[in-house]
Design a binder for these strands. Sequence first.
RNA 1: AGGCGCGUAGCUCAGCUGGUUAGAGUGCUUGCUUGACAUGCAAGAGGUCGGCGGUUCGAGUCCGCCCGUGCCUACCA
Length: 920
Amino acid sequence: MEKTYNPNSIEQKIYKNWENSGYFAPSKQGDPFCIVIPPPNVTGTLHMGHAFQDTIMDTLIRYQRMKGKNTLWQVGTDHAGIATQMVVERQLEIEGISRTELGRNAFEKKVWKWKKQSGDTITRQMKRLGTSTDWTKEKFTMDDDLADGVREVFIKLYEEGLIYKGKRLVNWDPILLTALSDLEVIQSDESGHLWHFKYPINDSDNFIVVATTRPETMLGDTAVAVNPKDSRYKDLIGKVVNLPLTNRSIPIIADEYVDQDFGSGCVKITPGHDFNDFEIGKKHSLDVINIFTREASMNKSVPEKYIGLDRFEARKLIVQEMEELELIEKIEDYNLSVPRGDRSGAILEPFLTDQWFVKMQPLAEPAIRAVKKGDIKFVPENWSKTYFEWMENIQDWCISRQLWWGHRIPAWYDEDNNVYVGINEEEIRDKHNISSSTELKQDEDVLDTWFSSALWPFSSLGWPKKTYDLETFYPTSVLVTGFDIIFFWVSRMIMMGIKFMGEIPFNEIYIHGLIRDKNGQKMSKSKGNILDPIDLIDGIDLDSLVEKRTQGLMQPEMADRIIKETKKEFPNGIPEFGTDALRFTFAILATTGRDIRLDLNRVEGYRNFCNKLWNATRFVKMNTSDMVFKKEFSDFKDLNLIDKWIQSRLNDTLDTVEHNFNVYRLDIAAKALYEFIWNDYCDWYLELSKSLLNDPDRSDEEKSVTKNNLISVLEKSLRALHPIIPFITEEIWQSLIDSNASKSIMMQSFPEKYDLKITKTDYESIEWLQSFVTNVRQIRSEMNISPKEKIDVLLEETNTQDLEKLDQTSSLIKDLASLNDIKVLKKKEDTPISAIALLGKSKILIPLEGLIDIDEEMKRLKKKFDKNSSEANSVKNRLTNKDFINKAPKEVVEELKNKLEKLEFNQEKIEEQIRMLSSN
RNA sequence: AGGCGCGUAGCUCAGCUGGUUAGAGUGCUUGCUUGACAUGCAAGAGGUCGGCGGUUCGAGUCCGCCCGUGCCUACCA
């Protein structure tokens, strides 16, 4: 083995081996355990969030596989309608071609080409991350069989009346020229104005004042509304207003909706361009005037001079003209929330179009019940509130998109615009008896991406075919996802799963946090703070990183700032950490919090952990090369105290790890393993084993028990660590034992605890040993006694228990604390002037002569005394409180009494020592 | 407006159903080229757990209010 751990040289070769050996496929034995991957978008590459999520899923899958489950991690990608179309359109733009010039078919071909490229990148990235996904089953949401499923679902819902087509106001993106669902709208707080317009009242010299944030929409006004209870305007109800700049007259109506206290208490009503106004319009049978084109410029329904103006140009002109007509009462600054498209960033328009909708309430009800009844559990549980909140107020879902990339809506129209929904044209002609002379045209629109992802838990397993995977793995075991797509995806999967499979799609939903940068900022291309997980694995120099972050920016003016900040944060680029270090970091960061800040210092720390593990192995191998490892112990009695102790610590660790893997606390599991390997195995056990193996008084047989134990504990630890850090554990495991070389750790069982009971006395002996060593080290350090200088130590006032412990451990203590001798003093013997430490009932004395500065020692003792006495006081106070004695549980009181006794004992000893030193 | 979080060591975060004077990593200080590892070893400094009040024998932990901060949903003429 090399002296330092070098991830790059081992990881890729190991992955190939796993994949070629077919280890990722379900074993077809044991209980099923299945995770379907949240399919990444084929918009480019995986980011840190994906890597985090993949680490969690892979850890769970590997753990369950080692537990003997029949595991499947279903892998695949999402076509991601708008997002992907945008990426490709932007590429075309660079080439100077527009989508429309290219035409639908040619454009689709381009997207498929891009899909291949992006999909390959994603696959490559995932493999570098070590994901044990079954690649032979990889799916894409637009594969033929998944498309069949989408059509089947659409048709069934249509036939049941759960999908309908309607002319309704929708959120319209005038840049992408498509409708969006409510969820794709981002409300952004922006500053604007509130214009107070005076509308002249017919047959009167008076005006009615309306306030608006969107002056241009006045051309589409069809009423002015006031509150029926508003005494100011009572008389105006029913009168007519001359709408300025147009030749139209519109009524003044009364509606409860109007807030008397807001603005003037009068509202202009524009049913064609405002969701609330649309509802009011319906109620009062008002005309609906659409004044915009699809691009949100003014259409032909407005007076000539406005036609063709962009909505904001029109606004300017209208304000100017109103001003000239002296019809503006005032203009106030106003903060409003502007709806923007989550992909394009364009200001959206409520726009009247024909769209397809899914009626949600009937689907939502059983989905709510499933979570209420506990059939599906959120982890952490609290997220169910978010789920209910949305589901209980659910709105119909607009599923049609005016895009070219996606599942084409399976609806055809005849010349009279009659709609026929079915699998294809032929089937429709058959079913409805339509002759070939009648022309049928398929709907141009495609479905919202999330429509097909909603089917993913069953469509990816083969539905509508009854495949082995579908029968075996549905409902899947757990869904691992971020809270940002609970509405978009999770809730819709539950609804569709129940509807089409008759069963929930997963039993548990593990919601993890979102990876953010060092400053808590969300990582995004536009902010220029993205990190490619591969760059943490392989490392990257500063120039390449800057290049990556500034390439293809939507706002090129950001480049300077991005360059500056990247240089500041990564002056030397990013070093190579390796996949395992990155994965361990992710695992240990997977707490219940929402935001996970990634600090590269932590990755470095866990790379060091990998190196530690690597070097511990080197030590073990160097010291055990002369023996053949026997996997199981026939008799634990052969194990000496130290060997038993580390096995027992391992048992405790395995308990923690197993429990926490099962409740998705990978952080606690990872931490337990880290602490065990570093603090128990390396810091103590390996050091102790050195003296056991070098002890001339021990027989070869005894030594070989310890050697065997060194391997045994390491081997089990490797298996326990494998789900989190698969590569290094595989590499080490195969090289650790000859017979492992031809096998894989990932196919081994997860380590079982040995049925080994260490007695309390034995356990205390180790603690006594550790405490002894630490005490001596402390005094050495504080008294500036060089660590290598061998010294003598005296033990005073020892009782029989301590003597027994000393008997068991003295040679070990001598080695670890580098002592010449430990001499036990009989009572009343003259003790030399010494530094002391307290250990149980005994005193450890380090003779001062030639070594210790008495003043220093006095200072040290006084500090100890103060600390001890303030603690003793607080304990005493509690014990003298009658309420405490009476009301607290007996064990607590008892424990505290023991503590006080010990504190007081120590107190006495320290005092005694101080007296002794000061008398000299 | 409603909902959900968060505020613990310089930094990043653990701390389960209330019970030793609060832990980890990283950073910092001191000393160590001891043959597994300087990606290391040993020792140490550092916190009145955002504030106030309450419940309790006992409160980072439960309750109320306040301050700061973040996210989500709805609405805002």
